[in-house]
Amino acid sequence: MAENVTPRVRAPREASAGEVVSVRTLISHPMESGMRRDGDGNTIPRSIINRFVCTFNGETVVDVTMEPSIATNPYFQFEAKVMESGTFNFTWYDDDGSVYEDSSDITVS
């Protein structure tokens, strides 16, 4: 079970219409691969975030499917094109059914 999962997002607050902005996200999560063994030789069960979605005003920017080969504390950097003011919504889906969310507003002038 993942504890202290904290999403962090860095996106610009302001942009001009049609600008391509860079968005960075990081979420603290152990991303237990299911390959490791504990001291007694028992396999530590897999526990990862398996999907990450970023939307802007309800439309998809990027939708990432993740496997255990993604490093601890999944980090993503990508670009979005903003035509109007709105909100980025970020959603992470955990193997255990938890959903972590964050959002960031942007004003387009």
Binding site: S33, E59, T60, V61, V62, V64, P68, S69, P74, F78
Partner: peptide
Amino acid sequence: AAGNPNPNVATFKFGPMAGSQAATTRIRL
């Protein structure tokens, strides 16, 4: 990742709001 026990790493699907079809991430090898 061709040499990992499970070669699949990630799939990026780009939506209509994507500014470019590019991404940066961190993986295990």
